[in-house]
Simulated scan of single mutants.
Amino acid sequence: MVAITINGKFLGAPLNGVHRTAALYARELIRRAGEAHRVQVLAPQGAEVPASFRDLAPSVAKGVFGTGQGWEMLTLPARARGHLLVNFCNLAPLAHGNSVVMIHDAQTFLYPDDYSGRQARAYRVLLPRIARRARKILTVSHFARESLIAHGIGAATKIEVVHNGTNHILAEAEDASVLRRHGLLPGGYLLTIGSTKVYKNLRCVFDAMASPLPGGQRLVVAGGPDEVDYRRAGWRPPEGTIFTGFVSDSELRALYGSAGAFVFPSLTEGFGLPPVEAMHCNTPVVAARAGAMPEVCGDAALLVEADDPQAYREAILTLLEDTELAERQRSRGRHRAAALSWEAAGSRLAELVTALVPAGPGRT
């Protein structure tokens, strides 16, 4: 008899960001909890499982409420009745109280303008209600836990921290064609991740590199929108900035591995995967002293004031000019990244989830 059902709605969307971590968490839970309990992934009809996650082997739950929110809120709880329902992507059905929900951050409360009005309003209404119904709330950092408490999303007694794993980037073989395509040489550029969301704070990196660096290193913005979108937002990318557009995981690994430094200026993050991915790729990191970054990166990154372009520039130049410091930061980065493994995340997750099985009497 099934004891644990994993909400597999994430399999109906591209596996990036939260959806990717959901797939990885699901895999780890099946590996560990599956030794003592029967675990299933339940997905809506039409969900396509990527080849790299065929082992999730989801069961399909057909329903008359579609494959989106109607499926999650109405079909899923009916099909998971009597099971502990585990939800990894912030939302969970209100009709199923015997549940665990992972809420990754409070971004829609902290920066509502960075989300569509409808999405921000829905999250503001739903998240506290979902959290009240759940037996346990998981989140990905102590900073995120404090944010959820501060915004009244969840009670402190219910919230547990499971740090994300980060070593998935090492499963990808480098695709160096992205370097050749953009004329990039090892150490000849700085890397950041593209986004026009205000809290991602790329404006500060653009300002930091407004004048050319002494070594001629260019800025590369991986993923995210085209240059015109940043200019529409009133930001001025430095001359010569390269906007790669979409990159595959293999291309991203190559970009990390050949960058002179990786720069992560977010004003807030519930966790912040990219800096640690860069550390796995032996690249020194400059990050904002904000959000979960001090907790996640520790001394493995040079942390600077989040809204100070000059501080970013000075940290970048220090890494580029002081080879001993750069090598020390690479070593610290490798050590820190190794501690944030999916093995460690899976062990902590299974410990918390299996403690709730079997479900309390009368919960549905």
Rank of each mutant, 00 (worst) to 15 (best):
Q45H: 09
A92C: 11
P58W: 05
E321Y: 06
H182G: 04
R330N: 12
G68V: 12
E324I: 14
A22N: 03
V178G: 06
F10A: 04
A156G: 12
H37N: 09
G194T: 00
P358Q: 09
T21W: 02
G245Y: 04
L349D: 04
F264C: 03
R121Y: 10
P274M: 07
H19P: 02
A26N: 05
E314P: 00
L273K: 03
V285W: 06
C204F: 01
T268S: 15
P265R: 11
L179Q: 07
L267C: 11
V178S: 10
R181C: 05
I30L: 11
A150L: 07
I137N: 01
M102W: 00
R38A: 15
G17M: 12
F264H: 15
T196K: 09
A359I: 14
P14H: 13
E72C: 11
E251V: 06
L320H: 01
H96D: 07
V41N: 00
Q69R: 05
V161P: 01
T75K: 12
A339G: 15
E321N: 14
A359G: 15
S250D: 03
T244F: 03
H104W: 09
M279F: 13
A350Q: 05
A350W: 00
E314N: 13
A95M: 10
N98F: 01
G17C: 11
V162P: 06
P212E: 05
A120S: 15
L191I: 01
G360H: 05
G12W: 01
V101Y: 06
T139G: 11
F53R: 11
K9T: 13
L273G: 05
W235R: 00
I149N: 04
L319M: 01
P186H: 13
R38C: 05
I169Q: 04
A26M: 02
R27D: 02
S258Y: 07
E314W: 10
P44Y: 10
R32C: 03
L317I: 09
G70K: 07
G223Y: 10
G17N: 12
S266T: 13
G70W: 12
K136M: 15
L42Y: 10
L94P: 09
G216R: 14
T244W: 02
S266P: 06
P58V: 01
D249F: 05
A338V: 09
L94N: 12
D308G: 04
P265H: 10
L76M: 10
P50I: 07
W235S: 00
Y115T: 01
T268R: 08
I159W: 01
A95H: 06
G240F: 01
